[in-house]
């Protein structure tokens, strides 16, 4: 589904992601872990097409298409979804209006009819229950005045509504209490289907107790320095990231 080869990404002239390779097949859940500043968000933002993150080398193929040649909106319309580590506040635009626009833009791209306000509302109400958010969140401006946890749940709500093919969650689990964490995990698990894939970017292994990954990768200084099965997450939890630093240092 997603094939990243030799990808390098820079921000403000500084190379952050270096020669990264990653292969994600349909049906898989990948956890990308790593210390702060290792380049996890840079990778996620570059995959979503953020213009500030400049791809300086490499290739990315998504569903057989050249992902890097696609605009951010075309990536979204092709089923790629990024749950932001820091969701953006949008004053004056209600969650409902925002989601209605997103749903209809994506439907139009797939040749489907526009949904009217009532249809959209019906869908949203179902999904709200899933993430245990009150209906009042629909009429509030997107993320404005939301607590940290509410913002994260709002990302999961959007994911549930848009039903992406490839979801990238950038530390959606950070800063959540255990109940909110379970809600997020449940949202992810619902998306887990043979034809979908999920990349869970996370700092901690906590969420991996609820969402079992097929592969765990360690990102360090912009490179994937270690890949293994889910047991790697437990090892990271136990031993922290320092031993990786030592191991990488020893190799370099």
């Amino acid at each position: 589904m997603l094939s990243i080869r030799d990808l390098s990404v820079g921000v403000e002239g500084k190379t952050i992601v270096r020669h990264l390779n990653l292969e994600v097949r349909a049906g898989e859940v990948h956890a990308v872990m790593g210390p702060n500043g290792s380049g996890k968000s840079t990778l996620a933002q570059a995959l979503a097409g953020h213009p500030a993150y400049a791809v300086t080398g490499g290739e990315v193929t998504y569903l057989g298409r050249d992902l890097l040649a696609m605009s951010p909106e075309d990536r979204a319309r092709a089923g790629l979804f990024l749950a932001f580590q820091y969701p953006i506040e949008i004053p004056g635009v209600s969650n409902a209006a925002f989601l209605k626009a997103a749903i209809n833009e994506q439907r139009a791209a797939r040749g489907l009819d526009e949904l009217d306000a009532m249809d959209v509302l019906e869908r949203l109400e179902q999904k709200l229950q899933l993430v245990e958010m009150d209906k009042s969140f629909l009429s509030r401006p997107v993320n404005e005045g939301f607590s940290g946890g509410e913002k994260k749940r709002n990302e999961i709500l959007q994911m549930a509504v848009l039903e992406p093919t490839l979801a990238i969650l950038d530390e959606t689990d950070s800063g959540l209490d255990i109940d909110a964490l379970k809600i997020v995990a449940q949202g992810v698990n619902r998306l887990r289907r043979p034809d979908n894939a999920i990349i869970l970017v996370t700092h901690y292994q906590r969420i991996l107790q609820y969402v079992e990954p097929d592969h765990v990768h360690v990102l360090f200084d912009g490179r994937i320095v270690k890949s293994a099965g889910k047991e790697l997450a437990l090892e990271l939890e136990r031993r922290g990231y320092d031993w990786i630093r030592d191991e990488v240092g020893a190799v370099a």
């Binding site: 979503a48 213009p51 605009s71 909106e73 004053p91 004056g92 209006a97 997103a102 833009e105 401006p141």
Partner: peptide, 26 residues
Amino acid sequence: AIFYLRSRGLDDTAARRLLTLGFVRE
């Protein structure tokens, strides 16, 4: 904010329009 909306499938024009509507909403 423009990028956030684009990442959800709105093109640049639609994103700017929605944000502008948001500006006068108050």
